[in-house]
Amino acid sequence: MERRDFVSNIGLTLALACTAGLAACSKGGGGYGGSTPPPPGNTAKLTLNLTSDLPNIGDFRISNGVIIIRTGTGKTAGDFTALSSTCTHQGCTVATYNKSTKLIECNAPCGHGSRYALSGAVNTGPAPNPLAAYKIAITGEVLTVS
Results as ranks from 00 to 15, higher is better:
Thr88Asn: 01
Asn42Val: 14
Ser8Trp: 02
Ser52Val: 13
Ile68Ala: 04
Ser84Pro: 06
Ser84His: 07
Asn64His: 09
Gly65Thr: 11
Ile10Arg: 08
Lys27His: 10
Leu46Gln: 07
Gly29His: 13
Thr47Pro: 12
Asp53Met: 10
Ser8Ala: 14
Gly34Ile: 00
Asn98Ala: 08
Glu105Trp: 05
Gly41Glu: 01
Glu105Leu: 14
Asp59Asn: 05
Asn64Ile: 11
Ile68His: 00
Ser100Thr: 15
Gly65Val: 09
Gly74Glu: 00
Leu103Val: 05
Ile67Ser: 02
Thr81Asn: 03
His89Ile: 05
Pro39Ala: 15
Asn9Lys: 15
Ile67Arg: 03
Cys92Met: 03
Thr93Phe: 04
Ile57Ser: 07
Thr19Ser: 14
Pro37Ile: 08
Gly41Lys: 05
Thr86Pro: 08
Ala108Gly: 11
Arg70Asp: 03
Val66Ile: 15
Gly113Val: 04
Ile69Gln: 03
Ala95Phe: 08
Leu54Gln: 08
Asn56Cys: 10
Leu22Gly: 11
Ala82Cys: 02
Thr101Asp: 08
Ile67Glu: 01
Leu103Met: 07
Pro40Gly: 08
Gly72Lys: 01
Ile68Thr: 07
Glu105Lys: 14
Glu105Thr: 15
Lys99Asp: 11
Gly21Val: 07
Leu16Trp: 06
Ala15Ser: 09
Thr86Glu: 15
Leu12Cys: 10
Thr101Tyr: 05
Thr86Cys: 13
Leu54Val: 14
Ile69Met: 02
Lys75Phe: 10
His112Thr: 06
Ile67Val: 14
Ala95Tyr: 07
Gly11Trp: 06
